[in-house]
Nucleic acid binder design. Structure first.
Lengths: 127, 127
DNA sequence: CCCCTATCTAGACGGATGTCAAATTAGAGA
DNA sequence: TCTCTAATTTGACATCCGTCTAGATAGGGG
C-alpha cells in the first residue's frame, strides 16, 4: 500500500550485528493473534473481570454461583451468561454438587496471557 | 437473589486464623474493573494484538504506519482505526515526522495489565 | 408425586464494534 | 501554487455483545 519507503524502515531489515541492541522478538503470527484475541475478549468485560477475581481470591478456591450472583446488581441469567463465556474460553471450570454449582479458576491460560503481555509486548521498554 | 446459603459459602467469611492458607487477596472493585476492562478490550482483537507486537518487537522501537498497513490485508482506514483505539487506550503513542507517522509502545499500561493477570487472578493456583 | 429453589437456555432488543468507500487533512517537492 | 502520497475522518453497513424476560432443567425434601 506504500510505494515509497520511509527512511527509518529501511534500516529495519538490516542484518543484526553482534553489537546491536537486544535481539528483536518475533511479532505474533496471524494464527497466534487469532488464538489469543478470544481469550482477551473473554476477560475484557468489567463483570467478567470481577467474576474472575472473585473466584480467584476466594479462600476455598471455588465459589457458588449464588454467591457470585449476589455480588452484582444483575439478573441470574446474565451472570450465568458471563460464567459461560469464561468457561468456554477455558479460564474457569465448574462442578455441580447437589443443588449448587461451584466455579474455580483454571490458572493455565491466565498465566499464558500474563506472560504474553509482559516479556513480549513490553520488550520495547528495555530499549 | 438466594435465600439459602450453600454449605461451603458459610465458611468464606470466617476470620482468617494464623495457620490458614495464604491471605485471601481482595477482589477487584467495581471501579477497578471498570477501568481495566476497556484496556483489555483494546487488546482483545487479533489485528490490534498483532499491531501491538509489531510495534513492540521492532528494532527501532517505533514503526511507520505504512509498514503496519503493509502487514495486513486490510485497508489503510481500518488500520488507522485500530491504531486510534490503541492510542486512546494509552497503549501506544505516535509522532509525525514529515509525511510519515510513527507509533511506539507506551509500556506502562501493558505492565499493569500483565501484573493484574498474574499475581492476582492466578493466586488460586498456589492453593 | 408435587413443590420449591438454583441454574441454565432461548429469544428479543438496543448499543457497540470492525470493515469499507469516499472525502479530508497534511506535508514534500516540482 | 499545483500535484502526489501518507494518514485520518466520516458515514454506512453488517455483525457481535450485554442485558433482560420467560421458560426449561435439575436436584432436594415434604
Amino acid at each position: 500500500m506504500s510505494n515509497q519507503e520511509p527512511p527509518v524502515a529501511a534500516l529495519a531489515d538490516a542484518p543484526a550485528g553482534a553489537c546491536c541492541p537486544p535481539p528483536v522478538c518475533a511479532p505474533l503470527s496471524e494464527e497466534e493473534a487469532g488464538e489469543l484475541a478470544p481469550l482477551f475478549k473473554a476477560i475484557a468485560d468489567p463483570v467478567r473481570l470481577r467474576l474472575l477475581s472473585l473466584i480467584a481470591c476466594h479462600r476455598d478456591g471455588e465459589v457458588c454461583v449464588c454467591e457470585l450472583t449476589d455480588a452484582f446488581e444483575l439478573t441470574a441469567p446474565t451472570i450465568s451468561h458471563h460464567l459461560k463465556v469464561l468457561k468456554q474460553a477455558g479460564l474457569v471450570d465448574s462442578e455441580r454438587r447437589g443443588t449448587w454449582v461451584y466455579y474455580r479458576i483454571d490458572p493455565r491460560l491466565l498465566e499464558r496471557l500474563s506472560t504474553i503481555l509482559h516479556p513480549r509486548l513490553t520488550a520495547a521498554a528495555s530499549r
